[in-house]
């Protein structure tokens, strides 16, 4: 193992660069250094102009997602020792999003899609506090718990070629959170979310590439959620046909 590693960072300075170009930084190698810590080293010791996002350093905040050797990963959860044998690694901003500057992707579109599916518990009527808390059995929790582990890091969007081709697709994380709340026994918002799921831009843009689930740092399995959403949407479609046959309105 050599004592330093070459990190090539795709730099983009708006107004200065037409397109991102790689810049090489040599960082001292140690086995416990994460890619995020390497970026901090570069910023502190080599080049204060480098821009990237980070916060918690422990795979909870979801800020430090970047493309590491072409794969969407969290900088804090990826260690330099993995690349020690090759002696180099390449970083660029998350794919499928506009690049704001250097390693910073503009994830606004993802945030819009999250809002579309109302990722919070919707109640038809608020209960007064005196009536106590909304209770749930362990079995009811189990139904959605896996999908509630999402940290909104956007790696699944960088992994999704459908979102890459057309970013009107609601995408893996938003559709996963839609299912997460639809499966929650305390929630009454399912009908509203189904309208989004039922659209072309909802679950139907997905072709089950499955790469979103491979890159998810929290093992949420968005591909499972989106495709269970297709089953739910197909049932919803059939029920709607029945309603139309009875002369009722389309929903």
């Amino acid at each position: 193992m050599s004592d330093s590693i070459a990190i090539y960072v795709a730099r983009y300075r708006p107004g200065q660069d037409e397109a991102p170009t790689e810049q090489r930084y040599d960082v001292p190698l140690s086995t416990d250094l994460s890619v995020l810590e390497a970026l901090n080293y570069i910023k502190d010791e080599l080049d204060p102009t480098l821009a990237y996002r980070w916060s918690c350093r422990m795979a909870i905040c979801g800020s430090c997602g970047v493309m590491i050797d072409g794969e969407p990963r969290l900088g804090c959860k990826t260690f330099l020792r993995e690349f020690a044998d090759r002696g180099e690694l390449h970083l660029r901003a998350l794919d499928n999003f506009p690049v704001e500057r250097d390693l910073i992707a503009d994830v606004e579109r993802f945030m819009d899609h999250l809002e579309t599916v109302k990722p919070w518990t919707v109640h038809n009527s608020e209960r007064p506090v005196s009536e106590g808390e909304y209770r749930q059995t362990p079995a009811e929790l189990e139904r959605y718990q896996q999908f509630s582990q999402c940290i909104n890091c956007g790696l699944c969007y960088a992994a999704c070629p459908q979102f890459g081709r057309d970013d009107s697709f609601l995408g893996p994380a938003a559709l996963t959170l839609a299912l997460r709340y639809n499966l929650d026994s305390r929630d009454d918002g399912s009908a509203g979310r189904m309208a989004a799921l039922n659209a072309d831009e909802g679950v139907w843009r997905c072709t089950f590439v499955g790469y979103c689930s491979e890159v998810c740092p929290k093992d949420v399995d968005p591909a499972q959620a989106v495709n269970r959403g297709k089953v739910a949407s197909t049932i919803n479609y059939g029920l709607n046909l029945l309603r139309l046959a009875r002369g009722e309105h389309d929903t």
Binding site: A195, A196, N198, A199, D200, E201, G202, W204, K230, S233, T234, Y237, G238, N240, D250
Partner: peptide, 12 residues
């Protein structure tokens, strides 16, 4: 958002 007819194609 407009309801998709994709469930028919997807079912088949």
């Amino acid at each position: 958002m407009k309801r998709s007819n994709e469930p028919v194609a997807w079912g088949l």
